[in-house]
Amino acid sequence: MKAFKKRGALTHFQILSEISKQDPHLKQKDLAQKLGITIQAVSENIKTLIELGYITSKDGRSPYKITQKGIDKVKRDAISLRKYSDSVLETMNHYKTIWPAIAGEDLKKDQIVGLYMKDGILYAHHKEENATGIVLEDTEKDSDVALTNLTGLIDMTVGEATVINLPTIKEGGTNVADMNLIKDVYENGTKSGAKIDKIAVAGTISRVVANKLDLNVDIEFAAPQATANAARKGLNVLALCVGDMTKSFVRELESEKIKYNIIDGRK
């Protein structure tokens, strides 16, 4: 949008547009109110527009009249602005209406496919589901597929979070952590008995505990947010955190309305 790159160009366009409406009673204070700028700024811009030959005025006061040169400029700038707006809208429409998924099997262009969640990831296949989409291009199994016209609701159960609070290094760290308890929680699953899908750690002591118990860590950075996001996608998360870090997990989980259980991991 080259027409508006120069400083004040957009303000010039707005002032010229208002003057082009040929309102003989248009005052500088009216322009200031409409454009959300000061009367002084309007006065300075009008002076510039007069010097450039875009408008005429007697003694720099109303009534203002737009010249043919000014009309041509407004038309050029309006076309430039419209092209830019059209390109933005096209990008936004493309962004909003095309979604990625993993192809559960070979899919053909224009096929209507069922959508389902597995391990927190969206999949598409030929079977009937409550949610559907249309395939945009031929796609092989296990590849990413572009979908449009998504309709319906994707069947998905919100997961749970089990948060184990571990002692700080000042309190003894792993030396006073109840390793057997942590292992049992992992093996027995959530409070409702569902298996643990992902392990999250926050803090050095949490990482050491996971290493000692040979737990595969899935989430380590921005763990509270990632834990809530994973649970929202149907995954059950065991989160190991140290001291006051528990508060961050609670805030995120409550914000996302995720069921959670806090366990003291000290001996």
Results as ranks from 00 to 15, higher is better:
residue 89 L to M: 06
residue 157 T to D: 13
residue 54 Y to V: 08
residue 224 P to G: 11
residue 113 V to W: 04
residue 261 N to I: 03
residue 182 I to K: 01
residue 176 V to E: 03
residue 37 I to C: 08
residue 119 D to E: 14
residue 24 P to Q: 15
residue 208 V to T: 06
residue 259 K to D: 10
residue 73 K to N: 07
residue 227 T to N: 03
residue 129 E to R: 12
residue 196 I to S: 11
residue 25 H to K: 14
residue 105 E to L: 02
residue 155 D to E: 12
residue 61 R to V: 12
residue 94 H to A: 12
residue 192 S to M: 03
residue 30 D to Y: 04
residue 142 D to T: 05
residue 27 K to T: 03
residue 70 G to V: 08
residue 133 G to H: 04
residue 242 V to D: 08
residue 3 A to I: 01
residue 182 I to N: 01
residue 257 K to Q: 09
residue 139 T to S: 14
residue 116 Y to N: 13
residue 124 A to W: 00
residue 256 E to G: 03
residue 33 Q to L: 07
residue 227 T to F: 00
residue 80 S to A: 15
residue 127 K to D: 15
residue 86 D to M: 03
residue 20 S to H: 13
residue 212 K to Q: 15
residue 29 K to C: 08
residue 131 A to M: 07
residue 239 A to T: 01
residue 173 G to S: 04
residue 142 D to Y: 11
residue 119 D to A: 14
residue 51 E to D: 13
residue 180 N to I: 11
residue 11 T to R: 13
residue 122 L to N: 01
residue 113 V to Y: 05
residue 199 I to E: 08
residue 40 Q to E: 13
residue 68 Q to H: 07
residue 238 L to G: 04
residue 3 A to R: 05
residue 245 M to L: 12
residue 158 V to D: 09
residue 9 A to T: 03
residue 205 I to T: 14
residue 260 Y to Q: 07
residue 100 P to C: 08
residue 70 G to A: 07
residue 61 R to M: 14
residue 59 D to W: 06
residue 79 I to M: 13
residue 138 D to G: 06
residue 105 E to K: 01
residue 187 E to C: 06
residue 73 K to I: 05
residue 147 L to G: 08
residue 55 I to E: 02
residue 34 K to V: 03
residue 171 E to Q: 13
residue 156 M to L: 05
residue 221 F to C: 08
residue 173 G to H: 00
residue 175 N to V: 03
residue 190 T to I: 00
residue 73 K to F: 05
residue 57 S to D: 11
residue 232 R to T: 08
residue 84 Y to Q: 02
residue 161 A to Y: 02
residue 253 L to N: 02
residue 188 N to C: 10
